[in-house]
Design a binder for these strands. Sequence first.
DNA 1: GTGGTCTAGACCACG
DNA 2: GTGGTCTAGACCACC
Lengths: 127, 127, 127, 127
Amino acid sequence: MIFIDYKDRRPIYEQIVDKVEELIIKGVLQPDTQMPSVRAFSVELSINPNTIQKAYAELERRGFLYSVKGKGSFVCFQDSLLEEKRIKIKEEISKNVEEAKLLHISEEELISLVRNVYQKNKGGNEV
Amino acid sequence: MIFIDYKDRRPIYEQIVDKVEELIIKGVLQPDTQMPSVRAFSVELSINPNTIQKAYAELERRGFLYSVKGKGSFVCFQDSLLEEKRIKIKEEISKNVEEAKLLHISEEELISLVRNVYQKNKGGNEV
Amino acid sequence: MIFIDYKDRRPIYEQIVDKVEELIIKGVLQPDTQMPSVRAFSVELSINPNTIQKAYAELERRGFLYSVKGKGSFVCFQDSLLEEKRIKIKEEISKNVEEAKLLHISEEELISLVRNVYQKNKGGNEV
Amino acid sequence: MIFIDYKDRRPIYEQIVDKVEELIIKGVLQPDTQMPSVRAFSVELSINPNTIQKAYAELERRGFLYSVKGKGSFVCFQDSLLEEKRIKIKEEISKNVEEAKLLHISEEELISLVRNVYQKNKGGNEV
DNA sequence: GTGGTCTAGACCACG
DNA sequence: GTGGTCTAGACCACC
Protein backbone atom coordinates (compact mmCIF):
# COMPACT_ATOMS: atom_id res chain seq x y z
CA MET A 1 0.00 0.00 0.00
CA ILE A 2 2.80 2.37 0.89
CA PHE A 3 6.21 2.63 -0.68
CA ILE A 4 9.11 4.45 0.92
CA ASP A 5 11.31 6.37 -1.45
CA TYR A 6 14.72 6.59 0.13
CA LYS A 7 15.91 8.94 -2.55
CA ASP A 8 13.13 11.34 -1.60
CA ARG A 9 14.63 14.11 0.47
CA ARG A 10 11.63 14.26 2.81
CA PRO A 11 11.95 12.30 6.05
CA ILE A 12 10.40 8.85 6.00
CA TYR A 13 7.80 9.62 8.65
CA GLU A 14 6.57 12.53 6.58
CA GLN A 15 6.23 10.37 3.49
CA ILE A 16 4.11 7.97 5.53
CA VAL A 17 1.98 10.76 6.98
CA ASP A 18 1.30 12.22 3.56
CA LYS A 19 0.50 8.87 1.98
CA VAL A 20 -1.88 7.79 4.76
CA GLU A 21 -3.58 11.16 4.65
CA GLU A 22 -4.03 10.81 0.92
CA LEU A 23 -5.47 7.31 1.28
CA ILE A 24 -7.93 8.56 3.88
CA ILE A 25 -9.00 11.52 1.77
CA LYS A 26 -9.39 9.31 -1.29
CA GLY A 27 -11.60 7.04 0.79
CA VAL A 28 -9.34 4.03 0.39
CA LEU A 29 -8.99 3.95 4.16
CA GLN A 30 -12.53 4.20 5.55
CA PRO A 31 -13.35 5.92 8.87
CA ASP A 32 -12.92 3.73 11.97
CA THR A 33 -10.83 1.23 10.07
CA GLN A 34 -8.08 -0.10 12.31
CA MET A 35 -4.57 0.84 11.20
CA PRO A 36 -1.84 -1.80 11.26
CA SER A 37 -0.02 -1.89 14.59
CA VAL A 38 3.18 0.07 14.85
CA ARG A 39 5.19 -3.11 15.01
CA ALA A 40 3.41 -4.83 12.12
CA PHE A 41 3.69 -1.75 9.94
CA SER A 42 7.36 -1.30 10.74
CA VAL A 43 8.04 -4.91 9.76
CA GLU A 44 6.04 -4.53 6.56
CA LEU A 45 8.03 -1.49 5.49
CA SER A 46 11.24 -2.76 7.11
CA ILE A 47 11.86 0.50 8.86
CA ASN A 48 12.35 1.53 12.46
CA PRO A 49 9.22 1.29 14.68
CA ASN A 50 10.04 4.72 16.09
CA THR A 51 9.50 6.14 12.64
CA ILE A 52 6.00 4.66 12.37
CA GLN A 53 5.28 5.85 15.88
CA LYS A 54 6.22 9.36 14.87
CA ALA A 55 4.07 9.20 11.77
CA TYR A 56 1.05 7.96 13.74
CA ALA A 57 1.57 10.66 16.35
CA GLU A 58 1.62 13.32 13.66
CA LEU A 59 -1.49 11.88 11.99
CA GLU A 60 -3.26 11.88 15.34
CA ARG A 61 -2.17 15.46 15.94
CA ARG A 62 -3.62 16.42 12.59
CA GLY A 63 -6.86 14.62 13.40
CA PHE A 64 -6.66 11.84 10.85
CA LEU A 65 -6.17 9.05 13.38
CA TYR A 66 -7.31 8.39 16.90
CA SER A 67 -5.76 5.81 19.16
CA VAL A 68 -7.47 3.71 21.79
CA LYS A 69 -5.26 2.52 24.59
CA GLY A 70 -4.72 -1.18 24.38
CA LYS A 71 -6.57 -1.49 21.10
CA GLY A 72 -4.70 0.39 18.43
CA SER A 73 -5.01 3.31 16.02
CA PHE A 74 -8.07 4.01 13.92
CA VAL A 75 -8.93 6.17 10.97
CA CYS A 76 -10.83 9.28 11.98
CA PHE A 77 -12.19 11.32 9.20
CA GLN A 78 -14.17 14.50 9.63
CA ASP A 79 -15.24 16.92 6.98
CA SER A 80 -13.55 19.75 8.86
CA LEU A 81 -10.19 18.16 8.05
CA LEU A 82 -11.01 18.29 4.37
CA GLU A 83 -11.94 21.93 4.69
CA GLU A 84 -8.65 22.69 6.43
CA LYS A 85 -6.72 21.01 3.66
CA ARG A 86 -8.72 22.88 1.05
CA ILE A 87 -7.82 26.17 2.65
CA LYS A 88 -4.17 25.21 2.83
CA ILE A 89 -3.94 24.12 -0.78
CA LYS A 90 -5.73 27.25 -1.94
CA GLU A 91 -3.28 29.38 0.00
CA GLU A 92 -0.41 27.52 -1.61
CA ILE A 93 -1.88 27.94 -5.06
CA SER A 94 -2.33 31.66 -4.41
CA LYS A 95 1.29 31.97 -3.44
CA ASN A 96 2.45 30.08 -6.50
CA VAL A 97 0.18 32.00 -8.83
CA GLU A 98 1.57 35.22 -7.43
CA GLU A 99 5.07 34.02 -8.19
CA ALA A 100 3.97 32.99 -11.67
CA LYS A 101 2.56 36.47 -12.21
CA LEU A 102 5.91 37.91 -11.15
CA LEU A 103 7.54 35.73 -13.80
CA HIS A 104 5.22 37.20 -16.42
CA ILE A 105 3.24 34.02 -17.00
CA SER A 106 -0.07 35.19 -18.40
CA GLU A 107 -3.41 34.69 -16.67
CA GLU A 108 -4.63 32.78 -19.71
CA GLU A 109 -1.73 30.35 -19.63
CA LEU A 110 -2.36 29.52 -15.98
CA ILE A 111 -6.06 29.06 -16.54
CA SER A 112 -5.46 26.69 -19.41
CA LEU A 113 -3.02 24.87 -17.12
CA VAL A 114 -5.82 24.44 -14.59
CA ARG A 115 -8.25 23.30 -17.27
CA ASN A 116 -5.77 20.76 -18.59
CA VAL A 117 -5.36 19.11 -15.20
CA TYR A 118 -9.14 18.89 -14.85
CA GLN A 119 -9.58 17.43 -18.33
CA LYS A 120 -6.92 14.79 -17.68
CA ASN A 121 -8.27 11.36 -16.71
CA LYS A 122 -11.79 12.61 -17.47
CA GLY A 123 -14.29 9.78 -17.17
CA GLY A 124 -11.80 7.48 -15.51
CA ASN A 125 -10.80 7.27 -11.87
CA GLU A 126 -13.84 8.79 -10.22
CA VAL A 127 -14.21 7.47 -6.66
CA MET B 1 16.60 44.75 2.51
CA ILE B 2 16.44 41.23 3.86
CA PHE B 3 14.93 39.98 7.06
CA ILE B 4 15.76 36.64 8.64
CA ASP B 5 12.82 34.81 10.14
CA TYR B 6 14.16 32.65 12.93
CA LYS B 7 10.77 31.01 13.37
CA ASP B 8 10.93 29.84 9.79
CA ARG B 9 12.00 26.22 9.71
CA ARG B 10 13.99 26.72 6.55
CA PRO B 11 17.72 27.23 7.06
CA ILE B 12 18.93 30.82 7.15
CA TYR B 13 21.09 30.51 4.05
CA GLU B 14 18.09 29.26 2.09
CA GLN B 15 15.98 32.20 3.16
CA ILE B 16 18.71 34.49 1.92
CA VAL B 17 19.04 32.65 -1.37
CA ASP B 18 15.31 32.82 -2.03
CA LYS B 19 15.04 36.46 -1.07
CA VAL B 20 18.00 37.58 -3.19
CA GLU B 21 16.70 35.55 -6.13
CA GLU B 22 13.36 37.27 -5.78
CA LEU B 23 14.97 40.71 -5.67
CA ILE B 24 16.96 39.93 -8.80
CA ILE B 25 13.92 38.63 -10.67
CA LYS B 26 11.90 41.65 -9.61
CA GLY B 27 14.65 43.83 -11.00
CA VAL B 28 15.37 45.47 -7.65
CA LEU B 29 18.92 44.18 -7.93
CA GLN B 30 20.17 45.06 -11.39
CA PRO B 31 22.73 42.97 -13.34
CA ASP B 32 26.39 43.65 -12.48
CA THR B 33 25.39 45.44 -9.27
CA GLN B 34 27.89 44.63 -6.55
CA MET B 35 26.39 42.68 -3.68
CA PRO B 36 27.33 43.56 -0.10
CA SER B 37 30.53 41.79 0.87
CA VAL B 38 30.22 38.54 2.76
CA ARG B 39 31.47 40.18 5.94
CA ALA B 40 29.43 43.37 5.64
CA PHE B 41 26.25 41.43 4.95
CA SER B 42 26.91 39.10 7.85
CA VAL B 43 27.25 42.07 10.18
CA GLU B 44 24.12 43.67 8.77
CA LEU B 45 22.07 40.54 9.39
CA SER B 46 24.03 39.65 12.54
CA ILE B 47 24.77 36.16 11.36
CA ASN B 48 27.97 34.26 10.71
CA PRO B 49 29.93 35.10 7.53
CA ASN B 50 30.03 31.42 6.63
CA THR B 51 26.26 31.40 6.33
CA ILE B 52 26.32 34.29 3.86
CA GLN B 53 29.14 32.55 2.05
CA LYS B 54 26.99 29.45 1.67
CA ALA B 55 24.08 31.52 0.37
CA TYR B 56 26.27 33.33 -2.15
CA ALA B 57 27.80 30.05 -3.29
CA GLU B 58 24.34 28.61 -3.92
CA LEU B 59 23.25 31.73 -5.77
CA GLU B 60 26.37 31.49 -7.90
CA ARG B 61 25.64 27.82 -8.61
CA ARG B 62 22.15 28.77 -9.72
CA GLY B 63 23.53 31.46 -12.01
CA PHE B 64 22.19 34.53 -10.22
CA LEU B 65 25.55 35.76 -8.94
CA TYR B 66 29.18 35.62 -9.93
CA SER B 67 31.96 36.09 -7.43
CA VAL B 68 35.51 37.19 -8.00
CA LYS B 69 38.11 36.63 -5.32
CA GLY B 70 39.48 39.92 -4.10
CA LYS B 71 36.78 41.91 -5.88
CA GLY B 72 33.35 40.92 -4.60
CA SER B 73 30.09 39.29 -5.65
CA PHE B 74 27.99 40.63 -8.48
CA VAL B 75 24.49 40.16 -9.81
CA CYS B 76 24.44 38.12 -13.01
CA PHE B 77 21.06 37.64 -14.59
CA GLN B 78 20.20 35.84 -17.80
CA ASP B 79 16.82 35.26 -19.32
CA SER B 80 17.34 31.49 -19.40
CA LEU B 81 17.13 31.53 -15.61
CA LEU B 82 13.67 33.05 -15.83
CA GLU B 83 12.52 30.35 -18.23
CA GLU B 84 13.77 27.63 -15.88
CA LYS B 85 11.89 29.18 -13.01
CA ARG B 86 8.75 29.43 -15.13
CA ILE B 87 8.85 25.73 -15.91
CA LYS B 88 9.37 24.89 -12.25
CA ILE B 89 6.54 27.04 -10.99
CA LYS B 90 4.16 25.64 -13.61
CA GLU B 91 5.01 22.11 -12.53
CA GLU B 92 4.40 23.12 -8.92
CA ILE B 93 1.03 24.62 -9.77
CA SER B 94 0.06 21.53 -11.74
CA LYS B 95 0.76 19.40 -8.68
CA ASN B 96 -1.24 21.80 -6.51
CA VAL B 97 -4.18 21.75 -8.87
CA GLU B 98 -4.17 17.99 -8.98
CA GLU B 99 -4.35 17.88 -5.20
CA ALA B 100 -7.11 20.48 -5.23
CA LYS B 101 -9.05 18.34 -7.67
CA LEU B 102 -8.67 15.41 -5.31
CA LEU B 103 -10.17 17.57 -2.57
CA HIS B 104 -13.19 18.27 -4.81
CA ILE B 105 -12.37 21.92 -5.31
CA SER B 106 -14.16 22.85 -8.51
CA GLU B 107 -12.42 23.96 -11.68
CA GLU B 108 -14.37 27.21 -11.55
CA GLU B 109 -13.25 28.01 -8.02
CA LEU B 110 -9.61 27.55 -8.94
CA ILE B 111 -9.94 29.66 -12.04
CA SER B 112 -11.54 32.48 -10.08
CA LEU B 113 -8.71 32.10 -7.56
CA VAL B 114 -6.22 32.64 -10.37
CA ARG B 115 -8.20 35.61 -11.70
CA ASN B 116 -8.30 37.20 -8.25
CA VAL B 117 -4.54 37.10 -7.89
CA TYR B 118 -4.17 38.70 -11.31
CA GLN B 119 -6.74 41.40 -10.56
CA LYS B 120 -5.08 42.28 -7.26
CA ASN B 121 -2.95 45.41 -7.40
CA LYS B 122 -4.20 45.97 -10.92
CA GLY B 123 -3.14 49.41 -12.04
CA GLY B 124 -1.93 50.21 -8.58
CA ASN B 125 1.50 48.80 -7.81
CA GLU B 126 3.50 51.49 -9.54
CA VAL B 127 5.46 53.45 -6.96
CA MET C 1 40.71 4.27 -0.27
CA ILE C 2 41.30 7.99 -0.56
CA PHE C 3 44.44 9.97 0.04
CA ILE C 4 44.53 13.69 0.64
CA ASP C 5 47.39 15.50 -1.02
CA TYR C 6 48.14 18.57 1.06
CA LYS C 7 50.60 19.80 -1.54
CA ASP C 8 47.81 19.83 -4.09
CA ARG C 9 46.51 23.38 -4.52
CA ARG C 10 42.96 22.18 -4.99
CA PRO C 11 40.80 22.33 -1.87
CA ILE C 12 40.47 19.14 0.13
CA TYR C 13 36.76 18.77 -0.45
CA GLU C 14 37.32 18.96 -4.20
CA GLN C 15 39.94 16.24 -4.09
CA ILE C 16 37.45 14.06 -2.26
CA VAL C 17 34.66 14.82 -4.71
CA ASP C 18 36.83 13.97 -7.70
CA LYS C 19 38.17 10.80 -6.16
CA VAL C 20 34.76 9.48 -5.10
CA GLU C 21 33.34 10.33 -8.52
CA GLU C 22 36.14 8.37 -10.12
CA LEU C 23 35.56 5.37 -7.87
CA ILE C 24 31.85 5.40 -8.71
CA ILE C 25 32.49 5.66 -12.44
CA LYS C 26 35.06 2.90 -12.27
CA GLY C 27 32.45 0.75 -10.55
CA VAL C 28 34.51 0.33 -7.40
CA LEU C 29 31.67 1.92 -5.47
CA GLN C 30 28.47 0.19 -6.54
CA PRO C 31 25.04 1.91 -6.63
CA ASP C 32 23.17 2.01 -3.29
CA THR C 33 26.34 1.17 -1.41
CA GLN C 34 26.41 3.11 1.85
CA MET C 35 29.22 5.62 2.04
CA PRO C 36 31.20 6.01 5.26
CA SER C 37 29.41 8.40 7.61
CA VAL C 38 30.52 12.00 7.59
CA ARG C 39 32.08 11.59 11.02
CA ALA C 40 33.71 8.24 10.37
CA PHE C 41 35.21 9.43 7.09
CA SER C 42 36.50 12.61 8.72
CA VAL C 43 38.26 10.56 11.37
CA GLU C 44 39.69 8.21 8.74
CA LEU C 45 41.15 11.07 6.74
CA SER C 46 41.88 13.14 9.88
CA ILE C 47 40.07 16.18 8.56
CA ASN C 48 37.12 18.18 9.80
CA PRO C 49 33.62 16.68 9.39
CA ASN C 50 32.44 19.89 7.74
CA THR C 51 34.87 19.32 4.91
CA ILE C 52 33.47 15.85 4.26
CA GLN C 53 30.00 17.29 4.54
CA LYS C 54 30.83 19.81 1.85
CA ALA C 55 32.21 17.09 -0.41
CA TYR C 56 29.14 14.89 0.07
CA ALA C 57 26.84 17.85 -0.58
CA GLU C 58 28.63 18.55 -3.85
CA LEU C 59 28.51 14.89 -4.86
CA GLU C 60 24.79 14.87 -4.10
CA ARG C 61 24.31 18.00 -6.19
CA ARG C 62 26.11 16.32 -9.07
CA GLY C 63 23.89 13.27 -8.74
CA PHE C 64 26.49 10.77 -7.60
CA LEU C 65 25.21 10.40 -4.04
CA TYR C 66 21.95 10.72 -2.17
CA SER C 67 21.82 11.38 1.53
CA VAL C 68 19.08 10.59 3.99
CA LYS C 69 19.05 12.29 7.36
CA GLY C 70 19.41 9.77 10.11
CA LYS C 71 20.33 6.99 7.69
CA GLY C 72 23.46 7.89 5.80
CA SER C 73 24.79 8.68 2.34
CA PHE C 74 24.45 6.28 -0.55
CA VAL C 75 25.91 5.85 -4.02
CA CYS C 76 23.43 6.80 -6.71
CA PHE C 77 24.62 6.31 -10.24
CA GLN C 78 22.74 6.91 -13.47
CA ASP C 79 23.96 6.56 -17.01
CA SER C 80 23.03 10.13 -17.83
CA LEU C 81 25.84 11.28 -15.53
CA LEU C 82 28.32 9.32 -17.64
CA GLU C 83 27.07 10.98 -20.80
CA GLU C 84 27.48 14.43 -19.24
CA LYS C 85 31.05 13.63 -18.28
CA ARG C 86 31.77 12.32 -21.77
CA ILE C 87 30.66 15.58 -23.31
CA LYS C 88 32.75 17.58 -20.86
CA ILE C 89 35.91 15.58 -21.41
CA LYS C 90 35.53 15.79 -25.17
CA GLU C 91 35.22 19.55 -24.96
CA GLU C 92 38.31 19.64 -22.79
CA ILE C 93 40.28 17.53 -25.24
CA SER C 94 39.16 19.70 -28.14
CA LYS C 95 40.52 22.76 -26.35
CA ASN C 96 43.77 20.91 -25.64
CA VAL C 97 44.14 19.85 -29.25
CA GLU C 98 43.56 23.37 -30.46
CA GLU C 99 46.33 24.61 -28.20
CA ALA C 100 48.57 21.80 -29.39
CA LYS C 101 47.91 22.82 -32.98
CA LEU C 102 48.93 26.36 -32.08
CA LEU C 103 52.21 24.96 -30.77
CA HIS C 104 52.80 23.22 -34.11
CA ILE C 105 52.39 19.73 -32.73
CA SER C 106 51.48 17.65 -35.76
CA GLU C 107 48.18 15.85 -36.19
CA GLU C 108 50.06 12.56 -36.51
CA GLU C 109 51.89 13.06 -33.23
CA LEU C 110 48.66 13.66 -31.36
CA ILE C 111 46.99 10.66 -32.92
CA SER C 112 49.86 8.42 -31.95
CA LEU C 113 49.62 9.91 -28.46
CA VAL C 114 45.99 8.85 -28.32
CA ARG C 115 46.81 5.40 -29.66
CA ASN C 116 49.54 4.95 -27.06
CA VAL C 117 47.17 5.63 -24.18
CA TYR C 118 44.72 3.13 -25.59
CA GLN C 119 47.42 0.48 -26.12
CA LYS C 120 48.71 0.92 -22.57
CA ASN C 121 47.58 -1.83 -20.21
CA LYS C 122 45.99 -3.57 -23.18
CA GLY C 123 44.86 -7.02 -22.02
CA GLY C 124 46.52 -6.42 -18.69
CA ASN C 125 44.46 -4.38 -16.28
CA GLU C 126 42.02 -7.10 -15.30
CA VAL C 127 42.47 -7.94 -11.61
CA MET D 1 44.73 43.76 -27.23
CA ILE D 2 43.70 42.11 -24.00
CA PHE D 3 40.26 41.82 -22.54
CA ILE D 4 39.58 40.95 -18.91
CA ASP D 5 36.62 38.69 -18.33
CA TYR D 6 35.39 39.41 -14.82
CA LYS D 7 32.95 36.52 -15.01
CA ASP D 8 35.87 34.18 -15.63
CA ARG D 9 36.64 32.37 -12.41
CA ARG D 10 40.39 32.57 -12.97
CA PRO D 11 42.22 35.43 -11.25
CA ILE D 12 42.82 38.48 -13.39
CA TYR D 13 46.59 38.24 -13.31
CA GLU D 14 46.37 34.69 -14.62
CA GLN D 15 44.17 35.76 -17.50
CA ILE D 16 46.77 38.36 -18.40
CA VAL D 17 49.64 35.90 -18.14
CA ASP D 18 47.88 33.39 -20.39
CA LYS D 19 46.89 35.98 -22.94
CA VAL D 20 50.37 37.54 -23.17
CA GLU D 21 51.93 34.10 -23.43
CA GLU D 22 49.56 33.25 -26.26
CA LEU D 23 50.37 36.48 -28.09
CA ILE D 24 54.08 35.77 -27.78
CA ILE D 25 53.73 32.21 -29.02
CA LYS D 26 51.55 33.32 -31.91
CA GLY D 27 54.25 35.83 -32.81
CA VAL D 28 52.00 38.84 -32.37
CA LEU D 29 54.43 40.10 -29.74
CA GLN D 30 57.89 39.84 -31.27
CA PRO D 31 61.06 39.11 -29.21
CA ASP D 32 62.64 42.17 -27.55
CA THR D 33 59.51 44.24 -28.03
CA GLN D 34 59.01 46.50 -25.04
CA MET D 35 55.91 45.73 -23.01
CA PRO D 36 53.71 48.59 -21.81
CA SER D 37 54.77 49.88 -18.42
CA VAL D 38 52.95 48.52 -15.40
CA ARG D 39 51.25 51.84 -14.83
CA ALA D 40 50.26 52.39 -18.46
CA PHE D 41 48.94 48.85 -18.76
CA SER D 42 47.00 49.10 -15.52
CA VAL D 43 45.34 52.30 -16.73
CA GLU D 44 44.54 50.75 -20.10
CA LEU D 45 42.79 47.79 -18.48
CA SER D 46 41.52 49.88 -15.57
CA ILE D 47 42.77 47.42 -13.01
CA ASN D 48 45.09 47.59 -10.04
CA PRO D 49 48.81 48.08 -10.90
CA ASN D 50 49.66 45.35 -8.38
CA THR D 51 47.78 42.92 -10.58
CA ILE D 52 49.84 43.80 -13.66
CA GLN D 53 52.96 43.64 -11.56
CA LYS D 54 52.06 40.14 -10.48
CA ALA D 55 51.35 39.07 -14.07
CA TYR D 56 54.69 40.46 -15.30
CA ALA D 57 56.52 38.75 -12.44
CA GLU D 58 54.94 35.44 -13.35
CA LEU D 59 55.73 35.90 -17.05
CA GLU D 60 59.33 36.68 -16.13
CA ARG D 61 59.46 33.60 -13.91
CA ARG D 62 58.25 31.52 -16.82
CA GLY D 63 60.83 33.06 -19.13
CA PHE D 64 58.52 34.97 -21.46
CA LEU D 65 59.64 38.41 -20.29
CA TYR D 66 62.85 39.95 -19.05
CA SER D 67 63.04 43.25 -17.27
CA VAL D 68 65.80 45.83 -17.45
CA LYS D 69 66.10 48.05 -14.42
CA GLY D 70 65.07 51.59 -15.26
CA LYS D 71 63.99 50.67 -18.78
CA GLY D 72 61.03 48.30 -18.60
CA SER D 73 59.93 44.76 -19.48
CA PHE D 74 60.70 43.10 -22.81
CA VAL D 75 59.48 40.06 -24.66
CA CYS D 76 61.90 37.18 -24.42
CA PHE D 77 61.15 34.24 -26.57
CA GLN D 78 63.24 31.11 -26.75
CA ASP D 79 62.46 27.88 -28.47
CA SER D 80 62.96 26.00 -25.21
CA LEU D 81 59.84 27.69 -23.85
CA LEU D 82 57.82 26.31 -26.72
CA GLU D 83 59.17 22.86 -26.07
CA GLU D 84 58.21 23.10 -22.39
CA LYS D 85 54.70 24.09 -23.31
CA ARG D 86 54.49 21.26 -25.81
CA ILE D 87 55.43 18.76 -23.15
CA LYS D 88 52.89 20.20 -20.74
CA ILE D 89 50.03 20.15 -23.20
CA LYS D 90 50.87 16.61 -24.26
CA GLU D 91 50.82 15.52 -20.63
CA GLU D 92 47.44 17.12 -20.17
CA ILE D 93 46.08 15.48 -23.29
CA SER D 94 47.36 12.12 -22.08
CA LYS D 95 45.57 12.58 -18.78
CA ASN D 96 42.34 13.56 -20.48
CA VAL D 97 42.52 10.75 -23.01
CA GLU D 98 42.99 8.34 -20.16
CA GLU D 99 39.86 9.67 -18.52
CA ALA D 100 38.02 9.44 -21.83
CA LYS D 101 39.09 5.82 -22.11
CA LEU D 102 37.69 5.21 -18.63
CA LEU D 103 34.39 6.66 -19.84
CA HIS D 104 34.38 4.17 -22.72
CA ILE D 105 34.90 6.72 -25.44
CA SER D 106 36.38 4.77 -28.33
CA GLU D 107 39.86 5.33 -29.72
CA GLU D 108 38.31 6.05 -33.12
CA GLU D 109 36.03 8.75 -31.74
CA LEU D 110 38.93 10.56 -30.13
CA ILE D 111 41.05 10.33 -33.23
CA SER D 112 38.28 11.78 -35.36
CA LEU D 113 37.93 14.52 -32.73
CA VAL D 114 41.61 15.34 -33.22
CA ARG D 115 41.26 15.28 -37.01
CA ASN D 116 38.25 17.59 -36.87
CA VAL D 117 40.14 20.23 -34.93
CA TYR D 118 42.98 20.05 -37.43
CA GLN D 119 40.64 20.31 -40.41
CA LYS D 120 38.90 23.36 -38.94
CA ASN D 121 40.06 26.71 -40.38
CA LYS D 122 42.17 24.85 -42.94
CA GLY D 123 43.81 27.20 -45.40
CA GLY D 124 43.02 30.29 -43.38
CA ASN D 125 44.81 31.74 -40.38
CA GLU D 126 48.32 30.44 -40.95
CA VAL D 127 50.87 32.87 -39.47
C1' DG E 1 23.82 6.52 15.39
C1' DT E 2 22.96 9.63 10.87
C1' DG E 3 23.06 14.09 7.79
C1' DG E 4 22.53 19.19 7.97
C1' DT E 5 23.01 23.88 9.75
C1' DC E 6 25.26 27.37 12.32
C1' DT E 7 28.89 29.91 14.98
C1' DA E 8 33.50 31.47 16.05
C1' DG E 9 37.76 32.19 14.56
C1' DA E 10 41.69 31.28 11.52
C1' DC E 11 44.34 31.32 7.12
C1' DC E 12 45.00 31.88 2.10
C1' DA E 13 44.97 34.02 -2.56
C1' DC E 14 43.61 37.99 -4.94
C1' DG E 15 43.17 43.19 -5.95
C1' DG F 1 39.64 45.23 1.37
C1' DT F 2 37.47 40.83 -1.19
C1' DG F 3 35.89 35.66 -1.73
C1' DG F 4 37.04 30.84 -0.38
C1' DT F 5 38.57 27.06 2.53
C1' DC F 6 39.25 24.85 6.83
C1' DT F 7 38.93 23.74 11.86
C1' DA F 8 36.63 23.29 16.28
C1' DG F 9 32.69 22.65 18.51
C1' DA F 10 27.68 23.07 19.01
C1' DC F 11 22.73 22.01 18.07
C1' DC F 12 18.86 20.05 15.45
C1' DA F 13 15.85 16.60 13.12
C1' DC F 14 15.67 12.01 11.96
C1' DC F 15 16.18 6.82 12.44
